[in-house]
């Protein structure tokens, strides 16, 4: 849990797109552990961190995809493979992250104050 990320979500302007990534599990050596959060804005700004480097960059790509589709998604980020090594990042672990988009039009329209919790059929495809 990152208080600053929660605060940033609540101060999104109407229609401003963002996606929050949360580390929900890690295996092996990772820069941050379970519970770490980051909020990616569509324009490239961020609040918080899940460890930086190309792991975070990979999370950003998924976050942009989630903003585009409006669907939350789970992804596994592998810091053990070759691409990471080329960039000199060899933490060696794997992190599972969950990404939730906000204000993507389809769901979670925070700015409108809509409370769709519990009636989720219309939130998802």
């Amino acid at each position: 849990m990152d208080d600053k990320v929660i605060e940033a979500i609540l101060t999104l302007t109407p229609g401003e797109q963002a996606a929050m990534a949360t580390i929900v599990a890690t295996r092996g050596s990772t820069p941050r552990k379970s519970g770490a959060q980051i909020l990616f804005f569509r324009d490239g700004r961020i609040v918080g961190t899940i460890g930086g480097g190309c792991g975070e960059a990979e999370a950003r790509r998924h976050a942009l995809r989630a903003m585009a589709t409006g669907d939350p998604l789970s992804v596994q980020i592998n810091l053990t493979h070759e691409v990471a090594e080329e960039d000199g990042m060899v933490c060696g672990g794997i992190m599972e992250i969950f990404i939730q988009p906000f204000n993507s039009g389809k769901d979670h329209d925070l700015a409108n104050g809509g409370d769709n919790g519990g009636h989720s059929d219309e939130e998802q495809t």
Binding site: M1, I6, L10, G114
Partner: peptide, 13 residues
């Protein structure tokens, strides 16, 4: 959704 996050913030505060 927003209400829930507001509730979370008030919990944190």
């Amino acid at each position: 959704m927003k209400k829930l996050f507001e509730q979370l913030r008030s919990y944190i505060q």
